[in-house]
């Protein structure tokens, strides 16, 4: 467990750093992937409810601190996303990369629609087609592709942590 906490913390830090600096220069159609979202989905897919919720909360909080207008908005969204994904993971064969890709795709659409709804919709922009076509859908596709890398990293961490747990139990 300790391995997981430390490595997830390091992972969040690195991802936040990449997300806020170099990612802008590899954006496609003016859209960049949301690595923190992918991390939430990957961890929630492989872990328990609590893990999903906690990692969702901290990834969201990171986003709040780095670029949010309000502290807590992304944290709350992330928490529920992590929880939601962790709830369905028992029904899926969760160590399959394809499952991760598919879940990331769906999660991105739900998550970004929620962000758009709460931050723009109430201010009078009633257009739903444009944001879906030009922001949400490309981001979902981009996220799904990038999710392969992050999912495999998280999977490694999980295996590693399990291995260490087994070893420590034996002695």
């Amino acid at each position: 467990m300790r391995v997981k906490i430390v490595s997830y913390a390091v992972l969040i830090f690195i991802i936040a750093l990449i997300q806020s600096t170099v990612l802008g220069s590899i954006s496609v159609f003016n859209v960049k992937p949301n690595l923190l979202l992918i991390l939430i989905v990957s961890v929630a897919l492989l872990g328990s409810n609590v893990e999903g919720a906690v990692i969702g909360f901290f990834c969201g909080l990171t986003q709040d601190m780095l670029s949010g207008r309000v502290i807590g908005f992304y944290a709350l969204l992330g928490l529920y996303l992590g929880l939601g994904v962790a709830f369905i993971n028992k029904r899926l064969y969760r160590e399959n990369v394809l499952v991760a890709i598919f879940t990331t795709f769906i999660s991105t659409i739900v998550y970004e629609f929620a962000v758009y709804f709460f931050s723009m919709f109430f201010k009078g922009s009633l257009d739903l087609v444009f944001p879906f076509k030009y922001v949400i859908l490309p981001e979902a596709v981009y996220n799904s592709i990038v999710s392969i890398v992050i999912f495999l990293i998280v999977l490694k961490i999980n295996h590693w942590s399990e291995e260490l747990d087994r070893l420590s139990r034996r002695y």
Binding site: S20, E112, Y116
Partner: peptide
């Protein structure tokens, strides 16, 4: 030193 994380805002 840093750009916005998401795709919605320009901060």
């Amino acid at each position: 030193i840093a750009k916005d994380i998401g795709n919605w805002f320009n901060i």
